[in-house]
């Protein structure tokens, strides 16, 4: 009964991972059979400025977007975990962007961010003159200015934190009520309750979610960068590791080189998984798993 799944697990994940390892040391362009290249790919990666930019972009993206996503999800979970007026539709609304197909979501923002007729800049120009905002500044050039483009990708990805939100919502609801009753008896302020009760109790879940999101960020920057900013504006402002791999492999047909870059991505993933495993072990006793 387990067989189909095991075939899938081995054939679609474990074996491909092994193939990456082998492919990373070859030259392969689909036409000619792979030829052994030794460490040529690796040494080229080390000196490749584009790869370095892509790696930096990916890391910066993860370090900015992931905290924002988790903080937003936490805020929403704490705000909406109880029954109150409008909480139910608000919960659904917060989850909706996650349900929209990636590509449709990307196209939506491609339009929203358009500097001329995109709604965001139209809104920013309300009350201003000559295409300036009320404060007399030029509105952000989302698709042509490197910093604004990076901000745009981050903004897009912040909206899709639905999964994290659902998990945190469940985690918050699973907290014991009596702790809060004691806190109320002691006249604790809302901030105290958050800092001394809620946060410590949710810390394990939060830590695991942060690591998970860090890994996922390697992936969820791909479609926005491909569709909305096309890896630009020059030079490679929003070329992330995932886009670099895609371009190298599927556009420049350098599969061996792309595999070497993939290897770097997998190493990052493994590092994160190790961190996660250690966290899990530490909290295991806590959760009596």
């Amino acid at each position: 009964m387990l067989a189909p799944y095991l075939i899938g697990l081995v054939g679609l994940v474990l074996f491909p991972a092994a193939v990456t390892l082998a492919l990373a040391f070859t030259e392969y362009d689909l036409v000619n059979p792979p030829s052994w290249a030794g460490l040529a790919n690796v040494s080229e990666l080390v000196t490749d400025p584009v790869f370095r930019v892509a790696l930096t972009n990916s890391l910066v993206f993860a370090l900015v977007a992931v905290p924002l996503r988790v903080l937003l999800a936490l805020g929403l979970a704490l705000l909406l975990h109880r029954r109150s007026f409008g909480a139910r539709p608000a919960r659904v609304a917060a989850l909706l962007p996650t349900a929209v197909p990636e590509i449709a979501y990307g196209l939506l923002w491609l339009w929203l961010f358009n500097p001329l007729y995109g709604p965001i800049n139209q809104l920013l120009r309300v009350g201003g003159e000559n295409g300036l905002t009320v404060l007399g500044r030029t509105p952000p050039q989302w698709l042509t200015d490197p910093t604004d483009a990076r901000a745009a990708i981050i903004l897009m990805s912040v909206f899709t934190m639905g999964e994290t939100f659902v998990v945190l919502l469940a985690a918050r609801r699973a907290l014991p009520a009596d702790v809060y009753e004691v806190a109320a008896l002691e006249d604790a302020t809302g901030w105290d309750v958050f800092r001394r009760v809620t946060l410590p109790l949710m810390a394990p879940v939060l830590a695991l979610l942060v690591v998970r999101d860090l890994i996922a960020s390697l992936h969820f920057s791909f479609v926005p960068a491909l569709v909305v900013t096309d890896g630009g504006p020059p030079p490679y402002a929003t070329t992330y590791l995932s886009l670099f791999i895609y371009r190298t492999g599927f556009e420049y047909l350098r599969y061996g080189y792309a595999a070497a870059a993939t290897l770097v991505m997998m190493l990052l993933t493994v590092a994160a998984v190790v961190v996660q495993w250690r966290l899990f072990r530490r909290y295991r006793a806590f959760y009596r798993l």
Binding site: L9, V13, V19, T20, S242, G249, F250
Partner: peptide, 25 residues
């Protein structure tokens, strides 16, 4: 199997693009 599944869950989808493609190819 659970640990293997968790590991598979962690792998970013883009990391499997190139190897899966060469296999299907």
């Amino acid at each position: 199997v659970v640990v293997a599944s968790l590991a598979a869950l962690m792998v970013p989808a883009t990391a499997l693009l190139v190897p899966r493609f060469t296999i299907f190819r």
